[in-house]
Design a protein around this nucleic acid. Structure first.
Ligand SMILES: [Mn+2]
Ligand SMILES: [Mn+2]
Ligand SMILES: [Zn+2]
Ligand SMILES: [Zn+2]
Lengths: 136, 136
DNA sequence: AAGTAAATAGGAATCAATACTAAATAGGAA
DNA sequence: TTCCTATTTAGTATTGATTCCTATTTACTT
C-alpha cells in the first residue's frame, strides 16, 4: 500500500507508513481516534490531524473503505475486497461477513434508471453474541 | 403515526403533528435542518431544538429510520418497511429501491455465530442520472 | 548537498447535535 | 373547565468529531 502512496503522488512519510501499518494489520474497523492512539505507541508525537488527513487521503483514493455505522464516528477498513459487515448496535463491534455466492445481494432492475452503482454496502445490524450473553 | 405518539405516552402537539406530516409526505430522506426549514413554512416559530427532539424521539421508538450516508448529517425516512437505498455520492440524493424477491439479500451462514441480526441495510452507492448528465 | 513543495504538530475553529435555563404554552386527565 | 405536567421557545452553552491555520520540518527532486 505504501507503493500506492507513490503512485498517487503522495510522499511516503514515517507517519503515513505507521498509520497504514496499523489499519492493515487490524480487523476491528477502528475509528480515527483509535488509530491515532495505537500509532502513538510507536510515534508518540503523531498529531490527530495527521491521522485524519492520512485516512481521508487514503479513503478519497479508494485505498481504504469507510463504514458509517452510527451518527458518531466513522470507521475504517483496509480490506477493500467485496465483503459485508455485521454491526452490534450495543457495543459497536463490527465483524466481517463473507458475501455468499454471487455477491450475496442483487440489485433491482429499476436501479439503472436511477443512476450508476459503483459499490454496494450491506450492513447486518443486531446484537453480537457477547452482548446477548451479557444481558441475561 | 400520530396514534403511535399516544401509544408511546407522548403528547400530540401541533409541532409534532406538522413534523410528522412533513416526513411522511416526502420521499427525499431529509436531514433535520431541512425538515425544520419546511415545517417553518407552516409554523414559522418552530425551533430547531424541537425538531431535533421530535425526530430523535420518533427514531428511538423505531417509528422512523435513520440513514447514515456520509460523515455529515443524518438523514431520516418515515418509511420503515423493508427497502433499500441508492445514494448519489455527488449530490447526496437518496432514492428508494425495492427489495427484490425474498429480501434481495441473504445472510451468510456464519452470521448466527456472530450475533443476532435484527435488520439489514443495503446501500447502493454511485452517481445519479442527473449528476452523470451534468459532468459531460 | 540544496531547494522546493508537501507534510506535520499543535492549537484554534467549525459543525451537527445536545443540553440547559426560564418563562410561556398547551395536552389531556379528572 | 380546571389543574398538572409535558412541551415549546429562545437563547446560550456544551460536547464530540472533524477540519482549518500556520510556523516548522521533511521527503523527494536536481
Ligand atoms: Mn471489513
Ligand atoms: Mn427510504
Ligand atoms: Zn456487542
Ligand atoms: Zn446526484
Amino acid at each position: 500500500m505504501v507503493e500506492a502512496l507513490r503512485a498517487n503522488g503522495l510522499k511516503v512519510t514515517h507517519q503515513r507508513t505507521e498509520i497504514i501499518r496499523e489499519i492493515v494489520q487490524t480487523k476491528d474497523h477502528p475509528d480515527v481516534e483509535t488509530i491515532c492512539r495505537r500509532v502513538r505507541g510507536r510515534i508518540p508525537a503523531v498529531s490527530l490531524d495527521t491521522v485524519y488527513r492520512t485516512i481521508s487521503a487514503l479513503f478519497e483514493r479508494g485505498l481504504i473503505n469507510r463504514i458509517m455505522v452510527d451518527a458518531k464516528r466513522a470507521r475504517y477498513d483496509a480490506d477493500v475486497t467485496r465483503h459485508n459487515h455485521f454491526v452490534c448496535d450495543t457495543c459497536g463491534r463490527i465483524v466481517d461477513i463473507d458475501s455468499t455466492g454471487r455477491g450475496g445481494c442483487r440489485a433491482s432492475d429499476k436501479l439503472s434508471e436511477v443512476g450508476v452503482v459503483e459499490r454496494v454496502e450491506v450492513l447486518f445490524r443486531g446484537k453480537c453474541i457477547h452482548c446477548v450473553a451479557d444481558q441475561e
